Lab assay of single mutants.
Amino acid sequence: LKGVVVAGGVLAGAVAVASFFLRNKRR
């Protein structure tokens, strides 16, 4: 169960970083 929580956190972080980079590329 702990691994699932960690994986979810990593996935959420990756999505946040990806969206951040996409926003920067638009400018």
Score class of each variant (00 low, 15 high):
F21A: 05
V17D: 00
G8T: 13
R27K: 12
G9R: 06
A18P: 00
V4N: 07
R23T: 06
L11W: 06
G9S: 13
F21H: 03
A14K: 03
V4G: 04
S19I: 14
A14N: 01
A12R: 08
L11G: 01
L1S: 08
G9Q: 10
L1R: 11
K2W: 10
K25A: 12
R23V: 06
R23N: 06
A12F: 13
G8M: 02
G13I: 07
G8V: 06
A12M: 13
K2D: 01
A14C: 15
V15A: 12
A7H: 08
K2R: 10
K25C: 12
A16F: 09
V17Y: 08
L11M: 13
N24F: 09
V6N: 04
A16H: 07
V10P: 02
L22Q: 02
V17H: 01
A7S: 10
A7K: 15
A18T: 11
G9D: 06
G3C: 13
V17R: 04
R27Q: 11
R27I: 11
V15D: 00
L11F: 15
L22S: 03
V5C: 15
V15L: 13
V17S: 01
V6T: 05
K2Y: 06
V15G: 02
A16R: 09
G9F: 04
A18R: 03
V15W: 12
R26T: 11
N24L: 12
N24M: 15
L11C: 06
V17C: 08
G8I: 13
L11Q: 00
R27L: 14
R26L: 08
V6P: 01
V4H: 06
A7R: 11
N24D: 04
L22T: 03
V6Y: 15
K2E: 01
R26I: 09
V15S: 02
A12Y: 09
L1D: 02
L11I: 05
V5H: 04
A14Y: 08
L1P: 10
A12Q: 05
L22G: 02
A14H: 05
L22D: 01
V4C: 09
A7L: 11
F21M: 02
N24V: 14
A14S: 06
K2A: 07
N24C: 12
V4Y: 15
F20E: 01
F21G: 01
V17I: 10
L11E: 00
V15P: 00
A12K: 06
K2T: 15
K25V: 14
R27D: 06
V4T: 10
A16I: 04
G8S: 14
S19W: 15
V17K: 01
G9E: 06
A18Q: 02
K25Y: 15
R27Y: 14
V10D: 01
N24Y: 12
V10N: 03
S19G: 07
F21I: 09
G3Y: 15
F21L: 10
L1E: 02
A18K: 02
V6E: 03
R27A: 14
G9T: 10
K25N: 11
S19A: 12
L11V: 14
F20T: 04
A18I: 15
V6D: 02
V15T: 04
V4K: 14
A7Y: 14
V17A: 14
V17Q: 01
A16N: 02
K25Q: 08
R27P: 10
V6A: 11
A7C: 10
S19P: 00
G13E: 05
V6S: 04
L1K: 14
F20K: 03
A7N: 06
A12P: 02
F21W: 14
N24Q: 15
S19L: 12
G3V: 12
R26F: 15
F21S: 01
A7D: 03
S19R: 09
K2F: 09
V5P: 01
V4A: 14
S19K: 13
A12W: 08
G8Q: 06
V4F: 15
K25S: 13
K25W: 13
G13S: 06
L1N: 04
V10Q: 03
V10I: 13
G8H: 10
F21Q: 02
A7I: 11
G13D: 03
L22Y: 12
K25E: 05
V5A: 12
V6F: 02
G9N: 05
G3N: 14
A14W: 09
V4Q: 09
K2L: 07
S19Q: 12
R23I: 08
V17T: 03
G9Y: 04
V4P: 02
A14R: 05
N24S: 13
A7W: 06
F20R: 05
V10M: 11
V5S: 06
L22P: 00
L1W: 12
A18N: 00
R26S: 12
L22E: 01
V10T: 06
N24P: 03
A14T: 07
K25F: 12
L1V: 04
K2H: 06
R27H: 13
L1I: 04
F20D: 00
V15H: 05
V10G: 03
A7P: 04
S19T: 07
A16P: 00
G3A: 08
A16L: 03
F21E: 00
G3W: 14
A18L: 14
V5I: 07
G13M: 10
L22I: 10
V15I: 13
V5R: 07
K2I: 07
V4W: 11
F21D: 00
V15E: 00
A7M: 10
R26C: 14
V15R: 05
F20P: 00
S19D: 07
K2C: 09
F21N: 00
R23W: 11
V17N: 00
A16W: 13
A12C: 09
V10S: 03
F20Q: 04
R27T: 15
A14P: 01
K2Q: 07
V5T: 12
A14D: 00
A18F: 05
L11N: 00
A12N: 03
